[in-house]
Each structure stands twice: as structure tokens, then as C-alpha cells.
Design a protein around this nucleic acid. Sequence first.
DNA 1: AAAATAGTGTCTGTAAGACAATATAAC
DNA 2: GTTATATTGTCTTACAGACACTATTTT
Lengths: 247, 247
Amino acid sequence: MADPDSDIDELAFLAAYDASLYPRPSVAVDVVLLTVSGDELRTLLVRRSEQPQLGRWALPGTFVRVDESLDAAAARAVTTKAGLSEVFIEQLYTFGNPGRDPRTRVISVTYYALVDAARLEAAVLGRTGRELCLARVPAPDAWIVADTADGAALELAFDHRELLAVAVERIRGKLAYAPIGFELLPATFTLLELRRVHEAILGRPLNKDSFRRTILDRGLVEATGELARGLGHRPATLYRFARAGGR
Amino acid sequence: MADPDSDIDELAFLAAYDASLYPRPSVAVDVVLLTVSGDELRTLLVRRSEQPQLGRWALPGTFVRVDESLDAAAARAVTTKAGLSEVFIEQLYTFGNPGRDPRTRVISVTYYALVDAARLEAAVLGRTGRELCLARVPAPDAWIVADTADGAALELAFDHRELLAVAVERIRGKLAYAPIGFELLPATFTLLELRRVHEAILGRPLNKDSFRRTILDRGLVEATGELARGLGHRPATLYRFARAGGR
DNA sequence: AAAATAGTGTCTGTAAGACAATATAAC
DNA sequence: GTTATATTGTCTTACAGACACTATTTT
């Protein structure tokens, strides 16, 4: 493999390479930023302020800069549009059908991100309405994205409804084996809160007893020793996510 | 949403849109074409006949044409490089770090494909050696891709070793809940053959009894009524994949 | 004391692993 | 008949769902 002649050939080839010979598509990232608030799954939408599809609601996204990694572009989109940093974010799927964007061929590498509701709501405070929207994402059957305020259905830009559907499907599947529920909660939480998050994601009720057992047996959480307070009934133990895996 | 003025604005905008304003990366597809042969997981590699990385082994791939969907580009890569059509193929992950290709910024949308060994071996017959290679993909721990012939480790081009690792990880995970083993077998097969395929993918032995029960209980296979023959011992029932899901 | 949820213990059904016993085509 | 694997059946263990009961804080 370490043939010096071919190394020289390769260097010569690269020096002469003209990247502009072939037509190339544009590459964008779009982020499905999910949270659970009021026992419902919600996603952040941005109102398009430019053509095309001006005025429609879209997932936060941006074009990928030519010297920037895909992950970095996705993180930049979250920072720019939602004012958040250090969120849990993972690549989801890449959409690239010709014609999905009327401007030109745009390939969109999509990500999903998970943030706890308090953080997200603080970050977008005062900007919801014309500019931003924390839209409800209903149960799997009814794929209508609704505004939180008046419950009206929102028409999403481009193929973003499809991106959203893929994201929800993905985290539903992932919930069964990966500890992603914690990303949607503050640092300490009760088992009831954790279960409500799981139920919101799955869109169905979960068995209280076996949920408790499963979570505790896996050693993914550890008790902080403190109790929730001021609820009018017996307080629950507060837990924290045990990153080590425990046990 | 159906404001006629904004529609006119959008049309005017699109007519004036110049897609060449921003620098754009190249977009390629690469396919991890997997099969199980000789109780081992294998993947098809292509020897690079051009610069850069001339002579190294690479996953079959191609650049995406500007009017072609990603799926179509992946299917075209399989047809062109392996001479196969109608294979099971799914998108895997998109790699796009700057610097992963020395020519220019190349974003690679990767796919994995599954083919039964007999079909793949017939398709690449006579072309293995200098041009193509059906390389062994060993157990998860030893991430050395080895040539089938002399067992020597192969050095892969670009970041293709990483792509391969992600593909194997993905089908291992998927095997637990999706009927993908059938894609790696001919139309009819015995339960032993199906188990060997699963074992090759997972890299560990599976319990014979519960494997049989699990597969049969799920109703994913149905007996053809015929028996395997010529084996020197009691013949096993031949099954076929029951696409309906059964039961 | 009443309300409301937290937390514990027990029973049951399902599914997987282990193991034993029987079945059968090729030789 | 011998061989080697197929196929069936039973026992045990692990775990999830269901349900009953006790515990504890706020009002």
C-alpha cells in the first residue's frame, strides 16, 4: 500500500483536481427539536421569513458551510434558531429527492434533538407567535401538527411533515433500548415525571408498576435522597440519571 | 396560506434564484453490500482504479447526479459495481466531515444492502481478485477486514472502515425486531440455515430451541411442505418467508 | 380525617434457556 | 443398524402486567 510512486501520483492528481467539473446539489441540515411539555410531545417550528414558502412553518435548519461538519451545522442551526447549546442531538436521515425544494436540488441531512421543556421554553420566551412556535405533535395516527395556542393545524414547508414523522418514529423505537427520556427532563425528576415523558413519546399509557421496576432494575437512575414537595399528597423520591449505567 | 400575492412573489423569487451563489459540496452514495457465506458475514469491496487512493479497496459507490434521487443513485451503484438489481437496500447514515476525501468536500450518504450469497457470488463470478473482493467482516471486537483468499487484512480507502462498522452495528440492532435475515437466504431455507445467518450477523451462537420457537411463533415463515435432501441425516423442513406476517 | 399519589408485595401469564426424548433420511 | 441432525415436550427462570395493600404528605 505504501508505494511512493503512487503517493506522488496521488498528490499530482489532487493538485490538478477541479471540483467544479460536476454539477453539485446544495446540502442543508434540518433539526427536529423535540420536547415534552404538558404531557405532550412538541416540536419547535420557525416561521419562514424569506422566499420560498414565505410564511409557512418549517423545522429550524441551515445550509452546510463548505468547511463545516454536518454535526457542527446542525448544532449551529439549534443555536441560531432556538438559542440553545449543548443539547442532545443525533443524525436521523437524509432526504434528497429532486424537487423537494423548488429553488434547486437541496439534500437535507436531518437531525433530531431532545431538550427539556423548561430550558426550551426559557430559550424561546417572548419569540413564540409570529416567529417561533412550539407545536403539538399528536399521536401516531393523527399526523396533524397543531399550534399550541388555538389548536389549528399547521401547514409545514417543503417535506418537513415527513421529516417530523421519521423523527418521532425514530425516538419511539429508540426509547425501548436507549436512555433518552432523561434528555427531556431537568436534572432531577420523579419516576412519575419520567413515565409521563415516555407516555408522551409513545402516545400510549404505560404500566405503572413494571415501568418503575424496569427503570430501577436497569440501574439507569439513582435516588438523590430528596423528595418532591408541595403536591398535596405523599411526595415521590427525586432521582437523577446515573450516567455510569450503575450496578 | 393560499395567498395569491405571496405565490406570485415566490414564483418571481424562484425565477431569479441563482443556485451558484454559494459553494456546495459534492454528494456521493456508498453502499455496504453484505452477505453471509460460509457462516461468515462478508462485504463486497471494489479496488479503486482511479486516483485518489488508487489500488485501495473501497465500498461500491458513485456520485449523485443532480436530477437523481439518493435511493436511485444507491441502486445504480449496486447495479454498476456488482451487477445486481432488486436488492434489499436501506439508507444508513450520512458522513460529511471536511477532509474525509482529499479531492474536495464530499458528503457521502451511505446505504446498506443485503443479498443472498449465491446471487452475489454468481453476479461477481470471475471478477474477484484484482477488481472485486468479497471480504470477511469478523466479529465486533476485531475490526479487521480480511480478504477471503489469504486472510490478509485489507486497508480500506477513505473512512470506509467506519462506514462498514456502522452498517454492521445497524443490522445487528435491526435483526432483533425486523425480518432481515431472509434477505440473505434463497427463497426456501431450513431453520438451521436461518439461524446460521443470524449467528454470523451477531457474531455469537444462538440458542437452538428458542430460536426455532421465536421464529415460528412470530409467523414470519411458513413451511413449503418440502424437505431438504441429500444430507446424510434426517432432513429439515424447508420454509419460505411469509411476507404477509402471518397469523 | 380526607385526598391523592408513592411505594411494596404477590400472583399470573408469557417467553427464553436448558435438557431430555423421539423421529427419520442417508449411508 | 449407525449417524447426525430434526422435532417435540417438559422443566425452570426471568420478567411484565394486574391487583391489592400499606405509607406519607398536604389540605
